[in-house]
């Protein structure tokens, strides 16, 4: 059984954060929300594992992780 990674795991975290922000440049709030929703779905599919995804949902809700 795999667990959600909650320790730092992104190579070049500052570069990634800047790239993520840049994706939203010039978008309206609605367009930004839609972009974020698509990103959640793309990343969810990449993870695939249902246990990990449920743990990610809990983490995002700032709830204890089972």
């Amino acid at each position: 059984m795999s667990d959600l990674t909650l320790t730092p795991n992104i190579d070049g975290a500052d570069d990634y954060y800047a790239e993520l922000l840049a994706m939203h440049d010039g978008l309206s709030r609605e367009e930004s929300d839609a972009l974020n929703a698509r990103l959640v779905l793309v990343l969810s599919n990449h993870i695939g594992n249902r246990t990990v995804l449920s743990q990610a949902l809990a983490a995002a809700a700032l709830k204890p992780i089972k």
Binding site: L6, T7, P8, N9, I10, A13, D14, Y17, L62
Partner: peptide, 10 residues
Amino acid sequence: KFEFARPLVN
């Protein structure tokens, strides 16, 4: 709550 987010705090 989670250590992973701390390196992102700038």
